[in-house]
Computed example of a mutant assay.
Amino acid sequence: MKITQDAHVSFHYALESEAGEVLDGSRDGEPLTYIHGHRQIVPGLEAALEGREPGERFRQRVPASEGYGERDKSKVLELEREAFAGMPGLKIGLFCQIEDEQGEMRLGKVVALDTRQVTVDTNHPFAGQDLLFDIEVLSVRAATAQELSELG
């Protein structure tokens, strides 16, 4: 069966840097599964999987605009240091959960700090980067009615 709308797909992937370093992936664990055509993975990768079959291996470059998007300067937040008073070990590079203006929790990375402010970048870590995927399609089947109903 080929990957088409509403197919349940299972695949292994490695997200690699230009130098071939694996930045993220599934090969040391469980494969990634999704229902095709429902925006559960980045759009450029979903488009590249269209029409593929189990057993296919391929490499795909996904431009930032079809991956995690371009970096958004408005997602770099300057926050008062006192908001982090209960957080021991605050340092550059630390990932933390913060609440935005709408009350939604967002994951951010501390990119700068001083005695008064903490700068947190809530862009996805791969935003603004082209993505290089190494893909192995493991299985493809029609999604069940229950799986489709769970998509919301």
Rank of each mutant, 00 (worst) to 15 (best):
F11G: 01
R71Q: 15
Q40H: 08
G44N: 07
K73C: 00
R116G: 11
L77F: 10
V22A: 11
Q117S: 14
A143N: 05
F133W: 08
L113V: 00
M105W: 01
I35V: 15
L23R: 12
Q97F: 02
V76Q: 12
E50A: 14
S74P: 03
E53W: 04
E78M: 11
G29F: 12
D114T: 11
E56D: 14
H36E: 08
E78K: 04
I92H: 08
A7S: 15
G51T: 01
Q5S: 05
A142W: 00
K73R: 13
G103V: 11
L113F: 14
R106Y: 04
R57E: 14
K91D: 13
T144Q: 08
R57F: 11
D28V: 06
G69H: 07
T4I: 11
A14H: 02
E147I: 06
Q40Y: 05
S149F: 12
M1Q: 10
R106D: 06
T119S: 11
A83K: 13
R81N: 06
R39Y: 13
I3W: 04
A85D: 12
I41S: 00
E101K: 15
P125F: 12
G55T: 10
Y13I: 02
R57H: 13
A19K: 14
S149I: 09
I135W: 04
E50N: 12
